[in-house]
Design a protein around this nucleic acid. Structure first.
Lengths: 153, 153
DNA sequence: GTTACTGCAAACTTTTTGCACGACA
DNA sequence: TGTCGTGCAAAAAGTTTGCAGTAAC
């Protein structure tokens, strides 16, 4: 668990309130799916979340995980990350932040940086529509992949 | 065709050279797939490219389009766009640029902006790896979706 | 007690792969 | 002519959906 315990608690609390406010039910399955996503800062995909939650809720089904994540996304409690091709991945950090993306292995890590936060809606985007959020993707090679590359020399 | 004819020509030229340099064959199918992607600035998905190319090469198969795009991506002649969930989309603009993304309909448009180009590799990313490229995603609602929204009031 | 949610199974969409024929160099 | 690329078909991967039983409120 790489996310601080109190932040995990805060995220789970926020879930309960948001569900109640929307008239949705706080089920065991939803709670455990959120707990799983909230604990991780690795932007896990649906399959990983499913496997992890099943350790605690052995009867949960994959489609419930899909449905739960879609519901939570709709409520703004998690965000679907679209930085890599392939399986859907989710992020419980709903605060404004940026991403480092490894183009080799697909690692995604949150980047908090005030300089990047200061990037403002470009004039270049004005003709297309109204900008509501800005995310900077820093693409490159992660430390692990770089090390592996050296080992193969 | 929204991309200037001479730019399309330049991209097709660049294909021929790159394929030859890699010892790959310049087939009719590859040429027409590139022409299709190079002509468009809408970041088409594989299915759209397939449909469009089939008008000129009726016998082409969908899996050839998939394979061709993967090959071209490997050579750096097109880039797979990972800004929206769902089907793979491709961009023939391999120059450094940014994207406006409509979160409602999935529209993606290239944004050229010197201010955004000036965004530099954040210190915040340093611990994770080496940054090789930076893309800014400007997310919001496009003009068309905004208009539709008003019409439904 | 209602009604929304879940699990199961099946369907659907998107993408990949094996193989034999045909076309490029 | 040799070999790579294509088309076909089937499979694999990822995601969605209908339905009947179950659990939350």
């Amino acid at each position: 668990m790489a996310v601080a315990t109190d932040e995990v608690e805060r995220r789970i609390d926020s879930l309960s309130h948001a569900l109640r406010a929307s008239g949705l039910r706080l089920t065991h399955q939803r709670l455990e799916v959120v707990r799983e996503v909230a604990q991780s800062d690795r932007h896990p995909d649906v399959e990983s979340i499913y496997r992890a939650v099943r350790e605690r809720v052995p009867t949960i089904s994959l489609d419930t995980v899909y449905r739960t994540l879609a519901t939570l996304d709709g409520l703004g409690l998690v965000k679907r990350v679209t930085a890599t091709p392939g399986p859907a991945r989710y992020d419980a950090n709903t605060a404004h932040h940026h991403h480092f993306v490894c183009t080799r292995c697909g690692l995604i890590r949150d980047v908090d940086d005030q300089e990047l936060d200061a990037v403002s809606a470009a004039r270049g985007a004005a003709p297309f529509g109204s900008v509501e959020s800005i995310e900077v993707q820093l693409r490159g090679i992660c430390n692990d992949c770089r090390t592996k590359e050296r080992d193969h020399d």
